[in-house]
Each structure stands twice: as structure tokens, then as C-alpha cells.
Design a protein around this nucleic acid. Structure first.
Length: 227
DNA sequence: TAGGCCATCTGGTCCT
DNA sequence: AGGACCAGATGGCCTA
């Protein structure tokens, strides 16, 4: 929790609050470790989706030397008996010669390594589109944090979209902006800082519209009424 | 130094 | 049979 308080970005706070609940529910936040690297003064929603799809291109790489990989097999791992020798052939290739078993094992190891690298590439791609500070001084999100944060970011975006739709429907009914926004249109208590078209931000439209230029003409009834 | 996170190896299971 | 996926085990690195 203390780590979350260090966040400066309001949008990220909204995201991280729900994330934190989920993280605790899954046991991801243990001590101060799971939330490490979360930025102080995160710059809000620096969403950039251009990097999606990286993982799909990475599956062809051959990253590690297979010989080294096999030599790196860890003593005590399930592949070893207590005396340090490889387990009986039955577990690997049945009646194949030891050389063939070794070759097969190398192939399987390399394939698994490649698969995990692809998975990590996909996670990197996910991290790159999650709104948290990407500066070099910020340690990268852990895997579990990335997944949980992404989940809640998706939920938050879905809520924002739904709220936008409700607002458009509301404005299309021709009601004036001077009246308070009905509760049904502002169901998300912390959303004012994240979504500029609710609450106080909407009520002071003439100033706020300039801060959100992409929304002035189409969504703001006040702006549309200007000559 | 303990704990968290990660990469890697490995055997098992399921699918094609 | 071979590949993909999964989970367990292990050791290394890093941080509080």
C-alpha cells in the first residue's frame, strides 16, 4: 500500500487501487516486493499500442546454445537421481540410444526455452502499453503485476467507454449542461480525474474543453452552441 | 540474510 | 511420434 501512495498520476491511482485489491487476493503483494518499481509522478495515460504484435514475430529465434543448455541441467532437478545421474531412459524416448535421448532432450529444452522467451516477449509488449512510467529508473513490472494491472486497465477502459456512451446519449437528449450530471451518468466515484467529461470537469466546460481538444466539437454540447 | 522474481531443466499430459 | 502446454524443482540475482 505504501508503494501505491507514492504514485503521482491520478489515472494510474485509479487503476492501481483496483489492481492492488486483486493483487492481494492472488497473493501477489508480499511485503514491498510485488509493487516495486511503481513510479512516483507517473505521467498518466501514455497509452501507445503501436508495439503490439511483437511476440508473434519472435518465435523464429534460436537464442541459446543447446549444448550449454544441456550442460546447465541442474543437479537435484527432477531429471537427476540422487546420485546425480540422469534418470532411466523410460522417461525420455523409451528404447532410444543415450545419444538420441540426449539429442531429443536438447531439442525439447530449446523448444521450451523458445516458448518461454516468446511468452516473455508478449509480456514485454503488454508492459509497454500499460500506463506506468517507462523511464529507465523505474524497475519493470513483475509478470504477475503486469497481468493484474493489465486486467484492471482493460476494465477501466471499458468503464470509460461505457460512461462516454452514456454521456453522448445524455447530450443527445438535449438537456442542458448546467444541471448536475445524474448519478447514473457518473457511476465511477474516482473517475473525474481520469475521464474529463464528468463532474466538475464537465461543468466548467469552456475551460476544460481546451484541455481536451479531441472532445470539444463532437461531445461537448456547450461547444456546439458556440457561434 | 531472507524473500521475491526469474530463467532453465524436466517429466507428464494432451492434441494433431 | 512430435509438438505445445503445464507445473514442479532448482539455483542465481537483486533488494530491503
Amino acid at each position: 500500500m505504501a508503494e501505491l501512495k507514492s504514485l503521482g498520476g491520478e489515472s494510474y491511482l485509479a487503476l492501481a487501487q483496483s489492481y492492488n485489491q486483486t493483487a492481494f487476493a492472488y497473493g501477489a503483494v508480499r511485503g514491498g516486493e510485488a509493487m516495486r518499481g511503481y513510479p512516483g509522478g507517473a505521467g498518466g495515460l501514455d497509452f501507445h499500442a503501436a508495439q503490439l504484435g511483437k511476440s508473434a514475430e519472435s518465435s523464429g529465434e534460436q537464442s541459446c546454445d543447446e549444448e550449454d543448455a544441456f550442460d546447465g541441467a541442474k543437479e537435484g532437478s527432477p531429471a537427476f537421481e540422487r546420485d546425480g545421474k540422469l534418470k532411466a531412459p523410460g522417461a525420455l524416448g523409451g528404447t532410444k540410444k543415450p545419444k538420441e535421448q540426449r539429442s531429443l532432450r536438447l531439442s525439447i529444452n530449446a523448444r521450451e526455452r523458445r516458448r518461454m522467451h516468446d511468452l516473455n516477449d508478449a509480456l514485454d509488449g503488454l508492459r509497454s502499453v500499460i500506463p506506468y512510467a517507462h523511464s529507465p529508473s523505474v524497475r519493470k513490472l513483475s509478470k504477475i503485476a503486469t497481468l493484474l494491472l493489465a486486467k484492471n486497465y482493460i476494465l477501466m477502459q471499458a468503464q470509460a467507454l461505457e460512461e462516454m456512451r452514456r454521456l453522448v446519449a445524455y447530450l443527445n437528449q438535449g438537456q442542458t449542461l448546467s444541471t448536475p450530471i445524474p448519478a447514473a451518468l457518473a457511476p465511477f466515484g474516482q473517475s473525474a480525474a481520469v475521464y474529463p467529461f464528468t463532474g466538475a470537469a464537465l461543468a466548467s466546460c469552456p475551460e476544460k474543453c481546451t484541455a481536451f481538444p479531441g472532445a470539444t466539437s463532437g461531445l461537448c454540447k456547450h461547444c456546439n452552441e458556440k457561434p
